[in-house]
């Protein structure tokens, strides 16, 4: 494969400046990667709190985009207001999802709970289709659309926004886990639920919180990426799967791992699509996942309890 790649690069060298192209791919990879990373983080947060893999994670991204669209388009709210309102709104939806689906079934086994989340994902997608229709919708970019030219590559300013906001989301998440008592409680919960209960942590409340947090950061990702990709009721499915791949890639349960996994996945995908064929774009993610799972089943950073989050 390496040989093929080189040949491909040589073929195109004459047409475009190599540097600019690599940067182009890199930026689109980073953008996608950042979104995957945030979604993977969302998976990780809920997984650590409940041991459940929430397959409705992608739907939170979709809801982020759709709700943002509604606020901007129908209510004409300014972008910053709409953006924060979106995050709050989807967080509340996250809490409701947990309250009405996961909590009533808390004595069920994990597999049943995972199937419930798949049901939730189908349900949310259906509702979104009923509300917003099947056609993709556009959200205006946050700060115009004049590309920024950087070392021969034209970069959409929204990409900067994506990178900045996802970065903020990641930093916020890490800060939350490291420095707030709830964050510490959630880590404690992830390590030892029984001991967590014994220090007086209300595990149910933390599970709600984890759904809110996870839905909130996913919504932020959805809202910020929508101006680039358009938004549609079914955009969440593929994003959710990619995010899941990233989370597994990084080692399920590890926060840093999932961020890393997201970026690796995004960048490889971008280069693969650019240099090999864009029609295999989606296959790359799963191919990488399979390779990693064969070679290092616990994921890149999954090393058991100690490195969780």
């Amino acid at each position: 494969m390496g040989g093929g790649l080189l040949a491909l690069i040589n073929l195109r060298r004459e047409k475009i400046a190599l540097m600019g192209q690599i940067l182009q791919f890199l930026f689109s990879g980073l953008t996608n990667g950042a979104v995957y990373a945030v979604i993977a983080l969302g998976f990780t947060i809920i997984y650590n709190a409940t041991d459940v893999i929430n397959f409705a994670q992608g739907e939170f991204v979709m809801l982020g985009a759709m709700v943002m669209y509604t606020f901007v388009h129908f209510l004409s709210w300014p972008i910053p207001v709409a953006f924060f309102a979106t995050i709050i709104c989807v967080s509340v939806i996250g809490i409701l999802v947990e309250f009405f689906t996961i909590r009533p079934a808390k004595n069920a086994d994990i597999i049943s709970l995972i199937i419930i989340t798949i049901g939730v994902s189908i349900f949310l997608r259906g509702v979104a289709m009923m509300i917003w229709g099947k056609d993709p919708v556009a959200i205006p970019p946050f700060t115009g659309s004049t590309p920024i030219v950087f070392m021969g590559a034209a970069i959409d300013p929204q990409i900067i926004w994506v990178l900045v906001i996802t970065l903020i989301a990641m930093i916020f998440t890490q800060w939350f886990f490291k420095y707030t008592i709830w964050g510490k409680a959630m880590r404690a919960c992830a390590v030892n639920k029984k001991a967590a209960k014994l220090v007086g942590i209300k595990v149910e409340r933390l599970v709600s919180l984890s759904f809110a947090l996870s839905a909130g950061i996913s919504a932020a990702a959805g809202a910020v990426i929508a101006p680039i990709t358009f938004a549609s009721y079914d955009m969440g499915t593929m994003l959710g799967l990619k995010g899941f791949c990233a989370a597994v890639l990084g080692g399920l349960g590890s926060g840093v791992g999932s961020i890393l996994g997201g970026f690796i996945l995004g960048i490889l995908e971008a280069f693969g699509a650019g240099y090999i064929s864009s029609s295999y774009k989606d296959a790359f993610a799963f191919l990488i996942l399979l390779i990693v799972l064969f070679l290092k089943p616990q994921g890149l950073l999954g090393q058991g309890e100690v490195d969780k989050l």
């Binding site: 390590v191 309890e305 490195d307 969780k308």
Partner: peptide, 17 residues
């Protein structure tokens, strides 16, 4: 049943949760 990956201080803070 301590919280092994957390620091000693964090464990104590959680005690006072």
């Amino acid at each position: 049943q301590i919280f092994a990956p957390l620091t000693v201080l964090e464990n104590l803070e959680l005690g006072a949760y």
